[in-house]
Amino acid sequence: MRRLPIYLLIDTSGSMRGEPIVAVRSGLQSLLASLKQNPYALETVALSIITFDGEVKNLVPLTALEDFQIPYIDAPETGATNLGEALEMLLQKYDTEIVKTTPDRKGDWLPFTVVMTDGKPSDTLMFKNMCEKIKRYKFARVVACAAGPKAKTEPLQQFADDVFTLDTMDSSTFSKFWQWVSTIVSQQSQNVDSTQKDELPPPPEEIKLVL
């Protein structure tokens, strides 16, 4: 069974505590609910969640959408934003979880990754190394989102295909963002067999593309 793997990298640093993390939780709920209404997604999508603060956790390993259960995501009181370490884990999971095509086995579709952060990487050296390393990996797409006024877009542009900004971190903006992610994923699952990268569906006005 060929899967469409989706990796969600979510910032859980101290600044996400409170409304933002609550909004992330409900955003994930709505992402999951709308993906489950899409037959393409329900048959092919597998999800994984990696959270990063001072510590990086693989909250859910790559799991088929139909078996997926949303974990409880929390943000500690304080904590750094170890995005570099999160990318390291992503690539490590890529190596171990993604099935590649061999003569004996049909491989997964190219994975899709969404990164969301409200700050800038604290582990700068590691981050720099990972930005280099990720170039050697094939992804269907890596979308990064800088949420809130303190988020920096420059670091994200070093590894992501598309970088977006959210000006505010309230739950309505977040929920629009995750809704939009579900539209992207649905489109991706629908067109897995097309060889070229599709245009992204237009984002809602709260979400701005960084050129």
Binding site: R2, T101, K106, G107, D108, W109, L110, V192, D193, S194, T195
Partner: peptide, 8 residues
């Protein structure tokens, strides 16, 4: 004839 990736 199969491609490098699924679907080719």
């Amino acid at each position: 004839d199969g491609g490098e990736f699924a679907g080719q």
